[in-house]
Design a binder for these strands. Structure first.
Length: 285
DNA sequence: ACCCAGGGTGACG
DNA sequence: CGTCACCATGGG
């Protein structure tokens, strides 16, 4: 992996990273197609990512931004080439590689991931994005980018200024009180940073104590914010994958962590994302 | 009108 | 421990 710095951007080379896969696979909700690439807000900054001749161009992006933010956010220390080679050994997973090539699990901020996946419950990705956007517009910080105003995801204190009614108006529905209560719990001292150091199962136990967080949402947070790659979230799409592609009985296709760790090893969570992406894009039913 | 979406909660056995 | 009705919302 090599990085070339230009006037206003940084070009990531040596890893096949495809914005339309990374930003439209259901792991994050704040990026949208823009020109030849995607623009979104993460870590309090607006960033545009698009495929370049030699790799992935990030802009605006200084050398310091790469060092302090994007190297971590895009998990650039991890090469996906060997991982894809491993995936080829599984005949089902092998089928997902073509349509998921260029995938990369992001390392997102815990609070944003927590609230976003509370909203995700029994919801679809389009609506989830809309709800989050309206919440950010209400109480996030304004960020100007190329003449447009974007909004950061609010911190726990700012989100707590919204009432349950405000959240409901954003479209959160019955999840509004869950968001309110969980934001309050973080303000009152629930330590999201402590989970970085916890094992997968201890982290899951901690997250499950928060309102609106069940097993699946906890797995998403552990995978997408804390990089716990043994997390294996099972939603309706993954149930279909487990039943139709791996021969699960429907009643057993709820929790599959043990199967995943035995079957996919250290990269179970990444395998999950390849499978999820494949199922959604090919309408596997 | 009905069904579905990156499910969780609370009640009841 | 497992099961299950119920939960807002909007697009297909």
């Amino acid at each position: 992996m090599e990085i070339r710095y230009l006037n206003n951007g940084a070009e990531i080379m040596g890893e096949d990273i495809r914005p339309e896969i990374v930003f439209d696979c259901g792991q994050c909700f704040r990026f949208n197609p823009d020109g030849a690439g995607y623009t979104g807000v993460a870590c309090g900054k607006v960033i545009h990512a698009e495929k370049s001749e030699n790799g992935l161009m990030l802009s605006p992006c200084s050398k310091e931004d790469v060092k302090n933010i994007w190297h971590r956010y895009f998990d650039l220390a991890l090469s996906y080439k060997k991982i894809e080679d491993l995936f080829k050994k599984d005949s089902v997973l092998e089928k997902t590689i073509d349509c998921s090539r260029g995938m990369r699990l992001l390392v997102q901020e815990p609070f944003e991931t927590l609230i976003s996946f509370i909203i995700s419950a029994n919801n679809n990705i389009g609506r989830i994005k809309g709800i989050i956007e309206r919440i950010c517009t209400l109480c996030g910080d304004e960020i100007e980018h190329e003449g447009k105003i974007y909004h950061s995801f609010p911190d726990p204190e700012r989100l707590s200024t919204l009432s349950v009614e405000d959240l409901a108006k954003c479209g959160a529905g019955y999840r509004a009180p869950y968001i309110k209560q969980t934001a309050r719990a973080i303000c009152d001292g629930f330590d999201l940073n402590a989970i970085y150091k916890m094992s997968y199962s201890d982290g899951k136990k901690a997250l499950l104590s928060l309102k609106g967080v069940g097993p699946k949402v906890a797995d998403c947070i552990l995978l997408f914010a804390y990089s716990k790659k043994n997390a294996f979230p099972v939603d309706v799409w993954m149930k279909r994958v487990l039943i139709n592609m791996y021969g699960f009985e429907p009643k057993n296709a709820v929790q599959a962590e043990n199967f995943a760790s035995e079957h996919f090893g250290d990269y179970a969570g990444i395998a999950q994302q390849y499978l999820f992406n494949y199922a959604r894009r090919n309408r596997v039913i």
